[in-house]
Design a protein around this nucleic acid. Structure first.
Length: 960
RNA sequence: GCGGAGGUCGCCCAGCAUGGCCAAAGGCGUAGGACUGAGGCUCCUAUCCCGCAGGGGUUCGUGGGUUCAAAUCCCACCCUCCGCACCA
C-alpha cells in the first residue's frame, strides 16, 4: 500500500475513533452549521460532487480550527423517478446501460443483478458513497445521516406539506406537460429519446367563420397579424374533422381533435373528410367581417396545432412564397376549380412598420435572400429574422384598429386577452417539435387537471423570499441579484406526481411529493435526527404537532409526550438542539441549483420559519469540467470520487479541484495537474519534515523578522479569503505563496536551523489543513504537537509581528537582484565580478524628502529644488541633485503607496551592511565575485566611475 | 428568445468595484543550470519583442469613446458556458 493510502486510512480511523467531527450543542461555543445538498443516489459520487463538497469541507474545517462548534451533516436523496428508471433499465437488460454501470460505476457483477430492486440499487450507491466521502476526508457527523425514503423523514415532509397547505401556499390547478401516452406519465428531459428541451407552447387560435356556426380555428403565434390576413391555407390531402368542441363546431385536423381531448376539452367528432373539400370556399374574418378564400397549401402540417394556417403574405415569408408559387401554377388551381383571378387578386396587406423595410417586409426579405419557393431552406431563416425584427422594433399601423401605433411587444398580451374575451380567439398547447419517449412512444401535450402546485407566483410569498435573501450572505456576491430575479421569475411549481419514490401527499389521493419539493427545509431535520436514531423514535410518534413543537415552540411538552410516547425531556432536548444549530450558516452548491433547489429553499424557509431561522448563507460555484469538456458517463470522461481518491490521493484530489476555480467560474479537472499536485505534496512532505527535524536554534535576525512578517500577511489573506468562501484564492495563498516565502527565506539564510522557521511551518500546516487534512495531520504529528491539527487553533494575524524594516530590507535585495539580472541579460555575458555602490547620506536626505512629497500628491521639481537650495548642507551637491531629482520622481511612480509610507517610517537604511550580509547569497546566485562599497568609501573599486550614480534603494552596479 | 456568468501574456487563471504602483500575481508547461550513480524527484534561473547597463516598444475578445492616463469607466459588436420547470 502506498504511503499516501496508509496515511489516509490511519487518520480517517483516528478521527473516527476520536468522534472528532461529531458535534453536539455547546453553549460555551459559537456554532456553524454547514450543508451540502444531498446527492441523488442513482449512481456514484463523482468529482463534481467532490468539488462542491470540498468547498464546504474546507470551510467547515477552517471554522472548526477557529474555535467554532461546527456541524456538517450528510444524507442521501432517494426520492424521484430516475432511480426507478435506472433500475428498470437493468431489469430490461439494457446492454449499453449495464455496460456503463459495470465499467464507469465499477459495480460488481453479482451486485448488479440485484439492481432490479431500485431500493437495493440506491442502498448500494449510498454505501459506496459513504465510503467515498469518508475516504476523501470530509468532516461529517454521521450520526445524523438519513435517506429520503425513511419513514421518519417522511413524517417530517408530511409536517412540511401540511403546514404549507394550511398557510395557503399550496394550490390546485391545471397544467400542460409533455406526456407519454404509453407510460401515462410526464416525460421530462431525462426520459426522452429525442426532443430535449422542447416544452409545450401556447398557440393562439383565431376562430374564423366558415359559416354562422362553423369555425376554422387557425393557429398562430402572431395573432396581431389577423389584420393582414389575405387567405387561409388548408392541406388538401390530409384528414380534417368537423367536431363539437365544447359548445361550438370546429373544423380541425384529425390529429388536432385527438390532442384537444387531452387538453381538457370535450370533443365529439361528427364527420371526417379530406382538406380539399374546404379548398375554394370562403370564410369570414370575425373582426373585420371581410371574406377571404381558402387555398391549397401542402406545407400545412396536420400535426401542428389545428392544421389550419392563415396567410399574411406581407409579413410572413412562407405565406408570400406559397402564394407566389400558386400564382405561377394555374393548373393546380384549376384542379380545385379556383379561378386564376381569385389568386391574382390577392395583394399583401401591410400592417407592421419595421425599420429597414418598406410596405411588405416578407416580400422584400424573400427577394433579398433570393428564396426560390416554399421548399427553400432559407425560408425558415427569413421567417426567424423577420419575426425577431418585427417583434422587437415593429409598430402596428393604422390598419390595426385600436392597437395602431403600439409596438408588438407591448400589445401582444393585451390583444390576446381582448380577442379571447370577445370570443374571436381561443388557444391550445402543442409541441414546437417532435418528442419521443425513452420507450419509443411519440409524446403529446397533456393538460393535467387537479394538479397540486406550490404557488411561487404569490406576491406576498415572493416578498418574504426577498426578505430572506436580503439578510443572507451569498458567495460570490454577484449571485445575489440572480436570486432576486429568480424569485421574480418563478411561477407555480407542480409539487406532486403520481410515479417514482417519494412521500405521499398527506392529503392523499395517490399523489407523491415531487422530489425537488421535498428537499427544501430538511436541513432542520439534521438537528434532531440524531435523537430519532439514538432513541429509535418510531415514525408514528412523529406527528405534525411534535414538529410544531420542536421547530415553532407550539403546544405543551407534557401533553405531547403523553400522546406520542416520546419522553418529554427528549422533546426538550430536540427543541434545544434545533435552537442551537438553526439556522444553517452555509449551504453550498453548483450554480445549476440556483433557479430551483436553492431558491425553493429560500421560499420554504420564508413560509415555514420565523426570521431568526432563515438561512444565513449560500455558496454558489461553477460546474465542473473534465479536460475542458462537461462530464458525462456517455462521453467516457466520468470520474468518480472513489476513483479519484484511489488514483491521486484524497489531498491532491481536493486541492486539484479547489485550485480549478472559485466564484461562479467553471473549474476544469486536468488529470495531469492533479497528478503533478500529488507529486508536489510528496515533495512538500519531505520539505516540511526536514525543517521539522532541523529547526532548533534561536536565530532571530532580520531574515526571521521578514519571514514572520510575511507569514502574517499570508494568514490575513487566507483567513479573509476563506471567510468569503474564496477557496481557490485561499488555497493558492496558503500553498504556493507561503511555500515561496519559505523557499526565499531558506535560500537567503542558507540553512533551515532556526526555531522561528519551525514555528512558521506549523502555521503553514494549519493553513493547509482545511484543504489537505491527511498530509497535515501526518506532518503535525511529527512536529511533536499533541492532538489533531483538524482542531488545532487557527493562526491569528498578529500585527506586532509585522516588520516593515525587514520587509524593505528584503525588497532592496530583491530589487538589486532584479536590476543585476536585467543588466546581465542586456549584456549577454557571464559575470566575473559584480560591484554594488550604495548612496551617501545626503542623498537619503533628498530622497526621503521627495518620497514624502509624492505621498501627498504631485512632487513639483521647481518647488523641491527651491527647498534643497535653501538647505546649506546640500549646497556642495546642487548640481548632482538637479540631475537626480527627476530620476527619483520617475522611479517613485513605480512604487506603491504602502511602500512609500514604509520608507518614510524607516528612514535611512544601512544598505551597505544589508548588501554585505547578502554577499554569499549574490555570489551563489550570479556565480561571480561580489563587492559592496559605499560611494563615499575611500578605497572604493570603481573603474567605470559608476559609484556616483547610486541612489537610495537603487545602488549603482558595476559588472565585468 | 429570456435570465445569469464569462472572454487576460502557450495552457489554467488573478487583477477590473475604488483608472496611474500592470508587461500584468500564482500554478502548469517549456528552456537552461544545480544536485545526483541516474532521475520523469527536488532546488535555482529564464519564459511578449528589442536592447553590450538597470532602458524602450507592443499587448489584456473586436471596434469606437471618455481621460494627462484604461486590462480597469462608457457605447456597439462578436464568441463561450450555465439555467429556462414538473426534472435531479
Amino acid at each position: 500500500m502506498s504511503r499516501t493510502k496508509q496515511m489516509e486510512q490511519k487518520w480517517q480511523q483516528r478521527w473516527e475513533a476520536a468522534h472528532l467531527f461529531e458535534a453536539d450543542p455547546d453553549p460555551r461555543r459559537e456554532k456553524k452549521m454547514v450543508t451540502f445538498p444531498f446527492p441523488y443516489m442513482n449512481g456514484p459520487l463523482h468529482v463534481g460532487h467532490t468539488f462542491t463538497a470540498s468547498r464546504v469541507d474546507a470551510y467547515a474545517r477552517f471554522k472548526r480550527m477557529q474555535g467554532y462548534n461546527v456541524l456538517w451533516p450528510w444524507s442521501w436523496h432517494w426520492t424521484g423517478q430516475p432511480l426507478l428508471g435506472a433500475s428498470q433499465r437493468v431489469a430490461r437488460g439494457d446492454a449499453a446501460y449495464i455496460k456503463v454501470l459495470l465499467e464507469v460505476d465499477g459495480v460488481p457483477e453479482e451486485e448488479l443483478k440485484k439492481f432490479v430492486d431500485p431500493l437495493y440499487m440506491a442502498q448500494y450507491y449510498t454505501n459506496e458513497g459513504r465510503m467515498a466521502v469518508k475516504s476523501i476526508g470530509f468532516s461529517v457527523d454521521w450520526r445524523r445521516e438519513f435517506t429520503t425514503v425513511m419513514p421518519t423523514f417522511q413524517k417530517f415532509i408530511e409536517w412540511q406539506y401540511k403546514s404549507l397547505k394550511e398557510k395557503g401556499y399550496v394550490t390546485r390547478g391545471t397544467h400542460p406537460v409533455v406526456w407519454c401516452p404509453k407510460d401515462k406519465s410526464p416525460t421530462g428531459d431525462h426520459d426522452r429519446q429525442s426532443g430535449e428541451g422542447v416544452t409545450p407552447e401556447e398557440y393562439i387560435l383565431i376562430k374564423y367563420q366558415l359559416s354562422d356556426n362553423i369555425f376554422l380555428p387557425a393557429a398562430t403565434f402572431r395573432p396581431e397579424t389577423i389584420y393582414g390576413i389575405t387567405n387561409m391555407w388548408v392541406n388538401p390531402d390530409v384528414d380534417y374533422v368537423e367536431a363539437e368542441v365544447g359548445s361550438e363546431c370546429w373544423i380541425i385536423s384529425k390529429e388536432a381533435a385527438e390532442k384537444l381531448t387531452d387538453q381538457e376539452r370535450k370533443v365529439v367528432v361528427k364527420r371526417s373528410f379530406k382538406g380539399k373539400e374546404l379548398v375554394g370556399k370562403t370564410f369570414t374574418n370575425p373582426i373585420t367581417r371581410r371574406e377571404f378564400p381558402i387555398l391549397p397549401g401542402w406545407f400545412v402540417d396536420p400535426k401542428t396545432a389545428t392544421g389550419l394556417v392563415y396567410s399574411v403574405p406581407a409579413h410572413a415569408p412562407y405565406d408570400y412564397l406559397a402564394l407566389r408559387d400558386l400564382q405561377q401554377k394555374p393548373e393546380v388551381l384549376a384542379q380545385f376549380g379556383i379561378g386564376m383571378e381569385v389568386v391574382r387578386a390577392i395583394k399583401p396587406i401591410s400592417i407592421i412598420k419595421v425599420e429597414g423595410f418598406g410596405e411588405y417586409p416578407a416580400v422584400e426579405i424573400v427577394e433579398q435572400m433570393g428564396i426560390k419557393d416554399q421548399n427553400d431552406a432559407k425560408a425558415e431563416d427569413a421567417t426567424k429574422e423577420l419575426y425577431k425584427k418585427e417583434f422587437h422594433s415593429g409598430k402596428l399601423k393604422e390598419t390595426c384598429g385600436q392597437y395602431a401605433g403600439k409596438s408588438i411587444r407591448e400589445v401582444k398580451d393585451v390583444l390576446i386577452s381582448d380577442f379571447k374575451k370577445a370570443g374571436f380567439a381561443d388557444s391550445m398547447v402543442d409541441l414546437s417539435s417532435q418528442v419521443v419517449c425513452r420507450c419509443m412512444t411519440q409524446c403529446i401535450v397533456k393538460v393535467l387537471s387537479d394538479q397540486w402546485f406550490l404557488n411561487y407566483s404569490d406576491p406576498h410569498w415572493k416578498e418574504l423570499a426577498k426578505q430572506v435573501i436580503a439578510q443572507m450572505s451569498i458567495y460570490p456576491e454577484v449571485a445575489k441579484p440572480w436570486f432576486n430575479t429568480v424569485v421574480d421569475w418563478l411561477r407555480e411549481w407542480a409539487c406532486a406526481r403520481t410515479t417514482g419514490f417519494g412521500t405521499p401527499l398527506p392529503w392523499g389521493e395517490g399523489w407523491i411529493i415531487e422530489t425537488l419539493s421535498d428537499s427544501t427545509v430538511y436541513m432542520s431535520f439534521y438537528t434532531i435526527n440524531k435523537y430519532i436514531r439514538q432513541n429509535d423514535i418510531k415514525p408514528e410518534s412523529l406527528t405534525p404537532e411534535i414538529f410544531d413543537y420542536i421547530f415553532l415552540n407550539k403546544g405543551d411538552v407534557k401533553e405531547l409526550s403523553k400522546t406520542t410516547g416520546i419522553d418529554s425531556e427528549l422533546l426538550v432536548s430536540m427543541r434545544n438542539e434545533f435552537l442551537y444549530w438553526y439556522p444553517f450558516d452555509l449551504r453550498n452548491s453548483a450554480k445549476e441549483l440556483v433557479p430551483n433547489h436553492l431558491s425553493f429553499c429560500i421560499f420554504h424557509h420564508a413560509a415555514l420559519f420565523p426570521p431568526q431561522f432563515w438561512p444565513k448563507g449560500f455558496g454558489v460555484n461553477g460546474m465542473l469540467m473534465v479536460e475542458g469538456q462537461s462530464m458525462h458517463k456517455s462521453k467516457g470522461n466520468f470520474i468518480t470520487m472513489k476513483g479519484a481518491v484511489e488514483k491521486y490521493g484524497a489531498d491532491a484530489t481536493r486541492c486539484g479541484l479547489l485550485l480549478g476555480a472559485e466564484g461562479m467560474d467553471d473549474p476544469d479537472w486536468r488529470a495531469d495537474n492533479v497528478y503533478d499536485l500529488k507529486n508536489k505534496f510528496d515533495g512538500l512532505m519531505t520539505f516540511a519534515e526536514s525543517i521539522i527535524v532541523t529547526a532548533k536554534n534561536d536565530d532571530n535576525t532580520a531574515l526571521e523578522g521578514w519571514l514572520q512578517s510575511r507569514l502574517q500577511q499570508r494568514i490575513k489573506a487566507v483567513t479573509m479569503a476563506l471567510d468569503e468562501l474564496k477557496t481557490r484564492t485561499a488555497l493558492q495563498t496558503a500553498l504556493f505563496e507561503t511555500w515561496n516565502d519559505l523557499r526565499w527565506y531558506i535560500q537567503r539564510k542558507g540553512n533551515t536551523s532556526a526555531k522561528v522557521l519551525g514555528g512558521v511551518v506549523k502555521d503553514w500546516l494549519k493553513m493547509l489543513a482545511p484543504f489537505a487534512p491527511f498530509m497535515c495531520e501526518e506532518l503535525w504529528s511529527q512536529t511533536g504537537e499533541e492532538g489533531f491539527i483538524s482542531v488545532a487553533k487557527w493562526p491569528i494575524y498578529d500585527y506586532a509581528k509585522i516588520d516593515v524594516a525587514a520587509e524593505e530590507q528584503e525588497n532592496l535585495v530583491i530589487d538589486v537582484m532584479a536590476d543585476t539580472n536585467n543588466i546581465l541579460k542586456a549584456m549577454k555575458i557571464e559575470p566575473v565580478k559584480i560591484v554594488y555602490y550604495t548612496a551617501v547620506s545626503w542623498k537619503w536626505q533628498v530622497y526621503l524628502k521627495i518620497v514624502k512629497k509624492t505621498i501627498f500628491g504631485q512632487a513639483k521639481i521647481n518647488e523641491l529644488m527651491k527647498e534643497f537650495t535653501s538647505d546649506t548642507s546640500l549646497k556642495p551637491h546642487m548640481k548632482a541633485i538637479a540631475s537626480m531629482v527627476p530620476k527619483i520622481i520617475k522611479a517613485l511612480t513605480k512604487v506603491s503607496g504602502d511602500r512609500k509610507a514604509n520608507m518614510v517610517k524607516i528612514g535611512v537604511v544601512d544598505e551597505k551592511t544589508i548588501l554585505r550580509d547578502a554577499v554569499k547569497f549574490f555570489n551563489d546566485r550570479f556565480n561571480a565575485e561580489i563587492q559592496v562599497f559605499s560611494e563615499s568609501d575611500v578605497k572604493c573599486f570603481d573603474p567605470k566611475g559608476r559609484a556616483a550614480m547610486a541612489i537610495p534603494y537603487q545602488p549603482a552596479i558595476y559588472v565585468e
